[in-house]
Simulated assay, not measured.
Amino acid sequence: MKGAPVGPPGQKPSIGRAVHFQHGTTTCAADILAVNPDGTVALLVKPPNEHPFTTDNVEQAPTEAPEPAKWNWMPRV
């Protein structure tokens, strides 16, 4: 994985975890389907008012700020 991943201490991506995915200007809910050896993940992305879709080899955004076509941990509320 490029850069230092940002997230809660001790958390690693794993199958079934819920994350956010930046789809254009929309932040979407997503589920991790697979974790690849290079640290990228496969996601089931669930955009609002659109059909869900899958995407492979998605990198984690290097900061907490969303970046297009990358995933982030969901912020705690």
Results as ranks from 00 to 15, higher is better:
Met1Trp: 03
Lys2Glu: 07
Lys2Asn: 05
Ala4Tyr: 10
Gly7Leu: 15
Gly7Arg: 15
Gly10Leu: 13
Gly10Lys: 07
Lys12Trp: 15
Ser14Lys: 09
Ser14Val: 05
Ser14Trp: 02
Ile15Pro: 07
Gly16Lys: 07
Arg17Asp: 03
Ala18Glu: 14
Ala18Val: 15
Ala18Phe: 14
Val19Thr: 09
Val19Gln: 06
Phe21Glu: 01
Gly24Thr: 03
Gly24Met: 10
Gly24Val: 09
Thr25Trp: 09
Thr25Lys: 11
Cys28His: 03
Ala29Cys: 05
Ala29Val: 09
Asp31Pro: 00
Ile32Tyr: 03
Ile32Ser: 06
Leu33Ala: 07
Leu33Met: 15
Val35Phe: 09
Pro37Val: 06
Asp38Lys: 06
Asp38Pro: 09
Thr40Ser: 14
Thr40Leu: 04
Thr40Asn: 02
Leu44His: 13
Leu44Glu: 08
Lys46Ala: 10
Pro48Arg: 08
Pro48Met: 08
Asn49Met: 07
Asn49Ser: 10
Pro52Leu: 13
Phe53Ser: 02
Phe53Leu: 09
Thr55Cys: 13
Thr55Asn: 07
Asp56Asn: 04
Val58Ile: 14
Thr63Asp: 08
Glu64Cys: 07
Glu64Lys: 10
Pro66Glu: 01
Pro66His: 09
Glu67Arg: 07
Pro68Ser: 05
Pro68Ala: 08
Ala69Arg: 06
Lys70Trp: 02
Lys70Thr: 05
Asn72Tyr: 02
Asn72His: 04
Asn72Ile: 10
Met74Ile: 11
Pro75Val: 12
Val77Trp: 09
